[in-house]
Structures are given as structure tokens and as C-alpha cells.
Design a binder for these strands. Structure first.
Lengths: 144, 144
DNA sequence: CTAGGATAGTACGATATTCGTATTATTCAA
DNA sequence: TTGAATAATACGAATATCGTACTATCCTAG
């Protein structure tokens, strides 16, 4: 791969730093509304993306101690947002899935994200929007 | 403004949800390396972006209680990353600025962001990269 | 086929963080 | 010039995070 020009990269970095900061604030607001903390929300979104994942997977992905994740999952179970169950294939682990309530909550977050994305598209004309979405998808689908 | 097609918006939302999750994880990793917590890092980035801002500005932007921000700023001052000073124009408030150490820390984060951005550009060819950066800047510069 | 080690998660207590209330200092305005 | 409004801090209660110790399950070498 040919490295992109340094200036291009610098500008992109600044822009994305702002984007993520905005998304994060939007997320924090929504978290407060649902009286969930930031970690719990991230866990919820990861489980939505990875059904039947194990507790350790979430902990590793979110870079927190296993015990911290265990507490987080406790809270989410207590709030009726996710379900634990022991898979027969490996009864040491717990598989995690969203309940309907959890799905509804995720949908609420996604709506917030959607509003933010909509605002992003605003300054672009229709052709530019199509381009931007196409390139974004190309990046997103290129799994790391 | 004409609303973008629903499907376009949905796809963009999913892609950006993943982006921000990745950035957040990268940030958490860097935060742990500097033994700072998530809030402190966000505060640092905001102050970098808004020199001489007031403590209340940061609290409002990051949607946390004023006392929480006060604690966060305490920690950052103790770690020698920012400086408080009372502006003569309004001696109730405190103006916040990064020290050299704080600037270095921010630069470290930006480097992490830059790596993540670089990885994003990887699946695109040079023409697409130029397009993507151009459109991203157009969005970022359209201040909300 | 079973004993020892490895893996997956939980219980519990220590430390740190967040937040609400009360307080101090400063500014504004009637 | 006094009272209300603004800006931040002090302090204590509630909560979150994390490390250590523990339980349960799985794997594998003898």
C-alpha cells in the first residue's frame, strides 16, 4: 500500500477526532437518559453486533478487567437488557444475548447516531452523499 | 435540504457506529497507558481545541456535573498537564490551557488517531482517498 | 480414566470516581 | 449598596473499577 500524503492524513485525523467527540457526547446524553454508564452501553452495542458472544470477548474488546465486565453484565441483566446462558459446548463460559428490552435500547442509541449521521450529510449534495456513503461502507466492510 | 434515502442513512449509521467504537477502544488503551481515565482524556482534547476555555464550558460540552469536571481538572493539574488561571475580565471563572506536558500527551493521542485513520484509508485507492478526505473535511468544517 | 493444569467466570474488599448539596468568591443590576 | 446570579470548590454518599482469591468446567498426559 502507498502511504497517503501526510497533510491528507493530518486533516482526516482532525476531522475524525471531532466526529468521535460529537458522537461520544451524544452517546453520553443517551446513556444518562437510560441511566446506564458508558461501559454498559459499549457492552450492549458489542453484544448487539456479536450475538452469543462470551463475557471474556466483551472484556477483551473493551479493554477492561474481567471482573469489571462481570459487574457490567450483572447490571445489564438486572435491568432486563441482556440474558446469560451456559452453552452446552463449554459450560464454563456464558453466552450473552440481548433481550427485547436490550434491542429496544440499542435501537434508541442507533436513532441518536442516525440523527448525528443525518446532520453530517447535510452539507453535501446528493452526488457527494452517495460517494461518501459508498466510501464509508468500503472502509467499514474492510474488517481489521 | 432534501433528506437522504433511508437506506443510505442506515448504512452510514452502522458504519459510523463501528468507527466510533474502534476509536473509543484505541483511546481507552492509550488512556490506560497514560493512567488517565476517559473523562480526563476528553477534557484534555477539548482544552486543546479550545484554549482559555472555562471549566464550565468543558463540563457542559462533556455533559458531566461541574464538580466532576472540577475533580478531573484537579487530576490533570496534579499530573502537570494543564494550568488554571483567573482571567482579569471575570475573576470567578478559571481559564484552562495545556502545559507542554499536556500538549505532548495530546500529540500522543493524535498519533493513535492518525494510525487508526491511516488504517481506514488502506482499502481505498488514491483517487478515492482524495475524495473521502475532501468530503470529510467539508462535513467537519460545516460547524454545527 | 483420572489427576493436574488451564480456562471462564464470580465473590469480595480496597481504591478511585461521580455527583449532589452546601459554601466561597465575584459580578451584575435595581 | 444590597440582593440575586454566576463560577467554581469542599465534602460526603453512592457507585464503579480492579486485583486477589475462589469455584466450576474442560483438556490432556500418563
Amino acid at each position: 500500500m502507498i502511504a497517503p500524503p501526510a497533510e491528507q492524513l493530518r486533516q482526516l485525523t482532525l476531522a475524525f477526532e471531532r466526529f468521535t467527540r460529537r458522537f461520544k457526547v451524544a452517546e453520553a446524553t443517551a446513556a444518562i437518559a437510560n441511566s446506564l454508564n458508558a461501559l454498559d452501553v459499549q457492552a450492549l452495542l458489542f453484544i448487539d453486533d456479536n450475538p452469543d458472544c462470551k463475557l471474556g470477548d466483551v472484556a477483551r474488546h473493551l479493554q477492561v478487567a474481567l471482573t469489571t465486565m462481570s459487574s457490567s453484565i450483572d447490571r445489564l441483566v438486572r435491568r432486563g437488557m441482556i440474558e446469560r446462558h451456559r452453552p452446552e459446548t463449554n459450560r464454563r463460559s456464558v453466552a450473552l444475548n440481548l433481550t427485547q428490552g436490550g434491542k429496544d435500547t440499542v435501537a434508541g442509541y442507533m436513532e441518536g447516531y442516525q440523527d448525528a449521521c443525518n446532520a453530517m450529510l447535510e452539507p453535501l449534495d446528493p452526488a457527494e452523499r452517495a460517494d461518501f456513503v459508498r466510501l464509508t461502507l468500503k472502509i467499514a466492510q474492510h474488517e481489521t
